[in-house]
Simulated assay, not measured.
Amino acid sequence: MRRTFAVAMEEKKNHRKIIHIDMDAFYASVEQRDNPLYRGKAIAVGGSPEGRGGVVATASYEARKFGVRSAMPSKRAQQLCPELIFVRPRFDVYKEASRHIREIFARYTDLVEPLSLDEAYLDVTTDKQGIGSAIEIAKLIKEAIRSELQLTASAGVSINKFVAKIASDLNKPDGLTFIGPSAIAAFMEQLPVEKFYGVGKVTADKMKKMGLYTGADLKKLSEQELKNYFGKTGTFYYQIVRGIDDREVQPHRETKSLGAEDTFPYDLTVVDDMHEELEKIARTVHTRLQRYNLKGRTITLKIKYSDFRQITRNQSFPHPVGDIETILRTAKQLLAATGPEDKKIRLLGITLSNFGDTVLHTDKPNNPGQLSLFDFEG
């Protein structure tokens, strides 16, 4: 009995203490904080009801009650919420608030992995102030954000990144959820598949058609069966449904890619219209590359059709490129290779990647999937 207790204590001691902090409707909350006229109102940052192809970057919680969501076309958002107020993004203000938030994180640990301006992982296994409790540190961070920035954040606390991220989303806004080692197995089993981070709508629908509705259902399948159904991602599902996630919190992550895309309010069927939209997207990408002082060796074109089928095509260069002429010319060539005539295109996107030695270590947002402010700039 003593030996079993000792082993259990050793395992407990070896667990990481991970916090995932996610600001609550960050951009919209900053606007409501700074403008009393927006408080208690349904607002959307980014987009415009008159804008062609504009989409919502962030919606306030008042707007979310009507079904308004990030990445939703502006016209659809206004249909759902006729009183919706569209607010132009203020990049500098959001970045300054993010910088302040990271200063708060740094009071407790240097192991901070930013995912975007408003989201980060913290490893507080050994914290600077010797507090020892990840839950207490999460409370102190939330209190500091509230008192110093007049904003709220939600926190998830667990022994790995995957569970901590899911936990932070359970009690929004202004939530704090702890999922300890002994609770992970039961928690993952009852979790609906669509709540698994990394499982999108298409995959979730596929799972449900297979009779897989919860983590418990996924857990019944062997790793090989999951790989047969979902490819190499099957191994990820096999591990994560068992609460296994050995990824470390990685500060100073390198930018992997940077791009922009646009969803159109109607299907594009004329090549000239597609070229016109590609030019707008290319200019946005060029601006962002300049902002982060980046050039890439690979240009990728993303296309989504009216039937929601999605493809990507890319071209690599022997040297980094970043000029708008090369970006636009390459995007048009990649589009032409897909035979766009008479196709119905709902979305176009351009991304640069393979930065190599041109990447700068920076405290700016570095996960392209999380660069929501810039991705949805109208």
Rank of each mutant, 00 (worst) to 15 (best):
E96G: 00
V68W: 04
A63W: 01
K344L: 10
E50K: 12
K12D: 11
D118W: 01
F236P: 00
R69H: 14
L334R: 03
D174S: 10
R247S: 14
R346H: 12
D323E: 13
G259D: 08
L301N: 08
L360M: 10
K364Q: 15
F236Y: 15
A216G: 13
T338F: 00
E223V: 06
T300E: 02
F355A: 07
D357H: 11
Q129Y: 00
D323Y: 01
V45A: 09
K206F: 05
T233H: 12
G132K: 01
L80K: 13
V271W: 03
A167H: 09
G180A: 11
K295P: 00
A138G: 14
F317M: 12
R52P: 02
M188K: 11
Y237L: 15
M188E: 10
F5V: 14
V359Q: 13
V271Q: 04
Y238E: 04
Q250F: 00
V359A: 14
G378T: 03
I104Y: 01
Y229L: 15
H100C: 08
K161M: 07
M188N: 09
D342F: 13
V321Y: 05
F26V: 02
R242F: 01
Y38T: 00
P265G: 04
I85M: 10
S154M: 12
I159Y: 03
N228G: 11
R309S: 15
R99V: 03
Y266G: 00
P49D: 02
Y108E: 00
P49Q: 01
F236E: 10
R52H: 07
A164C: 05
E189K: 14
I281A: 05
A138C: 08
T338H: 04
A8N: 02
G175I: 05
P192D: 09
K172E: 09
G211Y: 08
R3L: 13
Y266W: 08
L360K: 15
Q129E: 12
K302G: 12
G349D: 05
V163E: 04
N354R: 14
F162R: 11
K142H: 11
F264Y: 15
G215Q: 07
Q290V: 12
K206L: 12
F178M: 07
N228H: 02
C81A: 10
P173T: 06
A6W: 06
D34S: 11
A336F: 06
Q310S: 15
S316P: 04
E96F: 05
K75S: 01
D357G: 02
P114S: 14
R329K: 15
F66E: 04
Q310E: 15
K219N: 15
N14Q: 13
F308M: 10
E11H: 08
T126P: 00
K95W: 04
R291S: 11
N293A: 10
V7K: 15
V87N: 07
V55F: 04
E261S: 12
V30Y: 08
Y305G: 02
S158V: 04
H361W: 06
P173V: 03
P318E: 08
V157S: 12
R99P: 00
Q370V: 00
T330N: 05
R329V: 13
K12M: 11
R329Q: 15
F236H: 14
T287S: 14
K172W: 03
S147E: 14
D34Q: 07
K139N: 06
Q290L: 15
T284C: 03
K161C: 06
F355M: 03
E31R: 08
T358L: 10
